[in-house]
Write a protein that binds this DNA or RNA. Structure first.
Lengths: 253, 253
DNA sequence: ATAAAACCTTGATCCAAGTCATAAGAACAA
DNA sequence: TTGTTCTTATGACTTGGATCAAGGTTTTAT
């Protein structure tokens, strides 16, 4: 974990926090009136931290809440009919998990902490009620869901069309962008997931992930020390992924 | 196109139609009061049919509306940095296209008709307003988006983990389920997309799709005549995909 | 501190699916 | 109708990444 990324003092009481939270501009980036922020605040429950490996919710459990990651990282996955885990996403601070549960009131995936992780629980029925009263909040929820749909479609492109190098490069650049958005270094960060989990997510064998990373390092695209990654040649990495330098979003994930 | 699936008389006036539409239970399956259905009706514009190959909206265009397919089929795709088309979805009657445009008010994909296709245009800002007044409508929109997220995640599993046989079988069973839901035959239908488009969508070469389909036919899993497909051995196909016969949804798409 | 378990790397081998090539239908336009 | 283009099928060949195997390193638990 980057040193800058301190375990935020997890205040025991449900005091108004969204206003102070450094993530508020990302998690539900709304220009809400103070009064409305307080109303939002009141429906949010800040939970005790999850330890590494702890499960936030299980596939099949009744859906009640979506969760915003405050610190740490989660993975979501489901168990296939043949019993293997299939990772469907990684979630960093400010990102919302559980949206796919709305459809039939059941989580279709499980969510597990990759490291010590704190989340805000947002009971969805309350969010829905509140969103009727605050149009900009409703719009925000639509936006977040819409973005998720768009992102997942980019992920489908990645899985269907890209080779191992492009997959790994896309993955690293995607993480880089997510760190950057939260004010951390875009070029130097720590992977909270194992190579195996990266491979599982990208549709690659562990060995392939390992080899690609080694090769990237040899070619001086990145610098690797265990889980610490530094991107050295960002332009070259972007070229690999097929990003025109000006159009940050397209074709990256 | 199945003979049962007549080109619905496309009434030129914006008269109330949702009530009569055979798809209403699927497209936004709500138990709305009559009065509310009328309000929904009034914001919906029924457009002239699109001919095969016509584009409904272009990647990059400003987002204004989502569209419900009434008859025919659409594909959505984006153009990658290397200039090739990447298909991200096929849309059958009752299905909603364009939800990924909400996020930044721009369609991140294009939508094109695979055959003569009619759609209902739903201006999103109106839908949003109306949804503030009709909570069950708002909930329905959340549900539709949530389902899309879940479905796309299943698609990611398919692309990342499945082999060619499993991909094609999943694709055919998925179509089968969608036809069935609308009251058509689950075992006998017509593909409105080419083998090339199927391959593009599934991350396979045309030749592979062709070979798999030929092999399925040889093994008497399906019966093929050009674009007409009959599923002969449904249980075997389901086994191939890894569906427990009782849990229709999981692991299928 | 030490053992056990999980994770990462690298090499050797293999195979599923991609690519290339060809040819025969289908769909379409003039 | 006839040519042109698109689509599908099938064979021969190639290859990227999976799998198998083994050894080293890091993390976790006691």
């Amino acid at each position: 974990m980057p040193a800058t990324h301190t375990q935020s003092r997890f205040s025991s009481k449900l005091s108004s926090q969204c206003q102070n939270c450094s993530l508020s501009a990302l998690c539900l980036p709304i220009a809400l009136a103070d009064e409305d922020i307080n109303r939002l605040d009141q429906i949010i429950e800040r939970k005790r931290p999850l330890k590494k490996g702890e499960v936030l919710f299980h596939q099949g459990q009744p859906f009640n809440s979506v969760f915003a990651v405050r610190t740490g990282t989660l993975k979501t996955f489901n168990i296939t009919s043949s019993g293997e885990e299939q990772i469907t996403g990684f979630y960093c601070p400010s990102e919302l998990v559980g949206l796919s549960g709305i459809d039939d009131n059941t989580y279709p995936i499980s969510a597990k902490a990759l490291e010590t992780t704190t989340v805000c629980e947002i009971p969805f029925s309350h969010l829905e009620n509140l969103s009727s009263q605050i149009p900009s909040l409703k719009h925000q929820v639509f936006k977040v869901m819409s973005r998720k749909i768009g992102d997942d479609q980019q992920m489908m492109v990645l899985l269907g069309k890209k080779n191992a190098d492009e997959k790994v490069a896309s993955f690293l650049l995607n993480l880089s962008n997510r760190f950057k958005k939260r004010g951390y270094s875009a070029t130097s960060f720590r992977l909270s997931m194992s190579r195996g989990e990266v491979g599982n997510y990208l549709g690659l064998a562990v060995e392939t992930v390992s080899r690609v990373i080694t090769r990237f390092q040899k070619n001086e695209l990145i610098q690797v020390d265990g889980k610490e990654i530094s991107i050295i040649d960002l332009p070259e990495m972007q070229k690999l992924v097929g990003v025109a330098p000006d159009c940050g979003k397209i074709a990256q994930f």
